[in-house]
Amino acid sequence: MPREAEPSLNEKQFVIQALQENLRLDGRELDQYRPLELTFGDQYGVADVTLGNTRILAKATAEVTVPYADRPLDGIFTIATELSPMTSPAFEVNRPTETEVLLSRLLEKTVRRSGALDTESLCLVAGQKCWSVRVDVHALSHDGNLTDAACLAVVAALRHFRKPDTSMEGGRLTVYTPAEREPVPLSWLHSPFCVTWSFFGDEGELAVLDATWLEEQVRVGSCTISLNKHGEICQIAKLGGTPVDAVALLQCTNVALTKVKEFSDLVDQKLAEDLKRRDKGGFMAELRAENDR
């Protein structure tokens, strides 16, 4: 497979010098995101996130399986990230690159380990049957900042998702098809989002939000902060790179919180719009299994 072309020395210096003069190639502020768009598919659990030229599609699915032997009371929740040659011809099928491994680990830490989805609620029969919820993340186009876009897509897809309704009667488990009963949402506890800072300059003194692919190639370090809108930090990852001043990092965390609040509002608003679009009312509304309580 062909290697991704690196930016030339001139290009690199141009980007860095512009950043030192507080200018970015696309005319954004240093702490400004590219235009963020979120759309939901016709099916439940499909979220499409566009961040500038970066585009991520996430799809959530659920099926009934046997729980792990060491966790009989928990359901299974997995996030699958696979970068295809569609993202860039440099990625190969079935051969994970470093980008892919780091992305899936970050998503795992942010969404799964922070307990955003209540896995105990996925248990159907202790030790025998449980739901296995799976989110597939497809990177359609990569123009920097895959992490933030992917995290937003995963959270939006899971919050949009509905799993088939079930009932237990005398030890007999029934899974209802969508035609029989309206599917039910997952038990969702909080929505964590990732905010990635990129550092430039010899000392890493320039902090920039939402780096494009070109900027990602010339940065000296990066730090991903995951938190929810209440300011609860789920994880901070600074993997190598130039050391950064601790006080500057604190400042970064504060800005990250305001960005996360914006993301959270955006997802809430889009979900509400989608619900309104789907709500047919009338007879179907009366047949719904869930009620306002």
Binding site: K59, T61, E82, M86, V93, R134
Partner: peptide
């Protein structure tokens, strides 16, 4: 390369 929406 054909990639399904869900699953490998």
């Amino acid at each position: 390369v054909v990639r399904p929406a869900a699953g490998v």
